[in-house]
């Protein structure tokens, strides 16, 4: 069966994910060492150790994302995170930075290493390089590849692949995007945040709600309509005589229907985005996906009804997987 890797922004969400059937949960420490460094989220070293005990007692794994790029002059913060993860007996760490991978391979050789999507390893050469240089055992693939490309990659590598199937969608190569820091000074790579709420300002103007990020207008919606969060790359902009979502519509990723094809492409694990999501959301999504991977493993059709509900009322796309981008 493909492994279902589920988000846990808090200890409560972790317990909910495990109880809903997650094979593995991923989480991070409450600081800038992880790419979901949001206020009120994440784990202290003590909470992590406790969570690992809870998960292991129920047969689930815990993966810890230490996937920002350590700040020059401040590497010890990231090194401590690695040591704390190992001390908590986690099943793997998810890393992106070369220097941190080298440190982990040297100082924590027994700690299993996964390559974060933030490393944007998008071809077999990159993946094999990370595998041979740092002993990486699994790679989370960027969301810019088609299913065919994923299959081709799997034919040329010896490590496991994990792909995002549900939740937020980066349209840029992850870990290689400074759009957010251009507007706000805060980026996923450096600070673990993208389009941070601290830099969002809403203003009612002539019947519209304008959403600005770092002073730049990301979209305007009529006051009566639901206003999406102003994530920079999902904004509405103008270029010459055209106005629209130049990069991507405000949609989220839903590759549920591609689960059989991803299995055939040799994917080992399916990842659900959303460490910032509520416990109820995590629980519902995990339950639906567990049913789907069970069905897939048993050769049965996917339970459509369980999955259709999740994105109801919200636009979703299969992103690059379905190749419409090409």
């Amino acid at each position: 069966m493909m492994e279902l890797v589920c988000p846990a922004g808090t200890p409560a969400a972790l317990r909910a994910a495990v109880e809903a059937g997650a094979h593995a949960v991923y989480c991070g420490f409450a600081d800038e060492t992880n790419a979901r460094n949001f206020p009120g989220l994440n784990f202290s070293p003590e909470e992590l150790a406790e969570a690992v005990g809870f998960a292991h007692a129920r047969g689930a794994k815990v993966l810890v994302a230490i996937n920002t790029f350590p700040r020059a002059g401040a590497e010890p913060l990231w090194h401590r995170a690695l040591a704390n993860a190992e001390a908590a007996a986690v099943d793997a760490v998810i890393l992106a930075d070369i220097g941190l991978l080298a440190h982990a391979a040297e100082r924590h050789p027994a700690l299993r290493r996964h390559l974060s999507v933030q490393a944007a390893a998008a071809n077999p050469d990159a993946i094999n390089l990370y595998a041979s240089a740092f002993g990486v055992r699994r790679v989370v693939l960027p969301r810019i590849l088609t299913v065919d490309e994923i299959a081709a990659i799997n034919r040329e590598i010896d490590v496991e692949t994990e792909v995002f199937v549900f939740g937020g969608l980066c349209v840029m190569a992850e870990g290689r995007c400074s759009l957010s820091s251009y507007a706000t000074g805060q980026s996923p790579n450096m600070n673990g945040v993208c389009s941070p709420a601290s830099h969002v300002v809403y203003a009612e103007e002539g019947g519209d709600l304008a959403a600005r990020l770092g002073g730049f207008t990301i979209h305007r919606t009529p006051k009566s309509a639901p206003a999406p969060y102003p994530t920079l790359c999902k904004g509405c902009f103008t270029s010459a005589d055209q106005t629209g979502h130049i990069f991507e519509d405000p949609v989220s990723l839903d590759a549920t229907h591609l689960i059989p094809q991803l299995a055939k492409a040799g994917v080992s694990a399916l990842k659900i985005e959303g460490r910032q999501r509520s416990r109820a959301y995590v629980s519902q999504v995990v339950r639906a996906f567990r049913a789907a991977v069970e069905a897939q493993a048993a050769g049965l059709p996917l339970p459509e009804s369980a999955l259709a509900r999740l994105t109801e009322g919200q636009a979703a796309t299969a992103g690059a997987y379905a190749k419409t981008w090409r």
Binding site: R71, G73, A96, I98, G175
Partner: peptide
């Protein structure tokens, strides 16, 4: 992505 000493080294 060269952000720190470890990577540069």
């Amino acid at each position: 992505n060269v952000y720190n000493e470890g990577t540069l080294r």
